[in-house]
């Protein structure tokens, strides 16, 4: 197992190198550049700016400089925001997205798994229809509808919670509630549906019939005999989903004024802010690769048939 872990961790290095290289060159292929605005800059000014950001050097030299920077933990300066570098943006926004994403994911897993199991063990009853109805709503209503509706009901009408803000920016802790609920909705829906179908499948398997024939109680059968097997698909879903949710959501962050990472995915592309684009891509893929690794490790704990060498 230890050997496997080391092997996998070492495997991350070439993966990341390829991702960085590809994104470094691809973003520069796109038309336009960070300093092309509506107002055409005088040639001299433009040359000066480019010299400051080393953009006058050959591309390969720029690439080498960038890679060396990354090895030192420096993701480079932002081309759009003067006086700020990429480390600053990511360092400030990623923790916020992570807090929000983690809370949302916990909610999604808690309710998703619960509703999924309830639906499966009460198949074709009102519990099942209610859970799956909620799940369909969660999947089909887009975030930009869910967010304002939540604000309208819980902030404007009921006055239970603040409409927007973020506790780190001096607002109350209650600001966390609405964005995390909104963010968790579609994940909850997916988890509930996955959980239901995998639990149903597990409950129909031969070894559950054996457990019944041994005289086990229904609750013991569900939690001791069926749970582990039924959780496997959820775990594989959670890996990439978690990577997605903690790197932020543009819509939720915009609507609830959360200073998260999500908006940089969009903004940096519009701005052709090369270093910032590659920076967020790098962060996202780092997390994704790490999550997949964790999924594999969790798998080996859940399923004794899986062992890594």
């Amino acid at each position: 197992m230890a050997k496997y872990v080391i092997k996998r961790l070492l495997g991350i290095i070439p993966t990341m190198f390829i991702i960085i290289t590809l994104s470094f060159f691809i973003v520069r292929v796109a038309p336009g550049g960070p300093f092309d605005g509506e107002k055409v800059l005088p040639e001299v000014v433009k040359r000066n700016i480019e010299a400051k950001y080393h953009m006058d050097e050959p591309l390969l030299k720029q690439y080498g400089r960038y890679i060396l920077g990354i090895l030192e933990g420096d993701l480079g300066p932002s081309y759009k925001y003067k006086d700020h570098d990429v480390n600053y943006f990511i360092g400030n926004s990623l923790p916020n997205s992570m807090i929000l994403g983690t809370i949302a994911m916990c909610l999604a897993v808690l309710f998703g798994v619960t509703f999924g199991i309830l639906a499966a063990v009460n198949q074709n009853s009102w519990v099942d229809y209610l859970s799956m109805g909620l799940a369909v709503i969660g999947i089909s209503i887009p975030l930009f509808v869910i967010c304002p509706v939540l604000q309208l009901v819980f902030a404007m009408k009921l006055h239970w919670l603040p409409t927007s803000g973020w506790f780190k920016s001096g607002d109350s802790w209650a600001t966390v509630v609405l964005p995390s609920v909104a963010l968790s909705f579609s994940y909850f829906a997916n988890i509930a549906r996955l959980m239901r179908s995998s639990m149903l499948e597990t409950l129909r398997s031969d070894y559950i019939r054996t457990a019944k024939a041994k005289g086990m109680k229904r609750s013991t059968i569900i939690f001791k005999h069926a749970m582990k097997g039924a959780l496997l698909p959820i775990v594989s879903y959670l890996g990439p989903a978690f990577a997605g949710i903690i790197t932020g959501s543009v819509v939720v962050e915009q609507v609830f004024r959360v200073p998260g990472l999500g908006k940089f995915f969009v903004q940096s592309s519009f701005n052709r802010d090369y270093t910032l684009i590659v920076g967020v891509v790098l962060v996202y893929s780092m997390i994704l690769v790490a999550m997949n690794f964790i999924v594999d490790v969790v798998y080996s704990f859940l399923d004794p048939r899986i062992s890594y060498q």
Binding site: T210, P304, R305
Partner: peptide
Amino acid sequence: GNKISMIFQDPMTSLNPF
């Protein structure tokens, strides 16, 4: 399982793999 026990056709799938 106490007074009447059963054994099934397919031993590969009838025991809980977990």
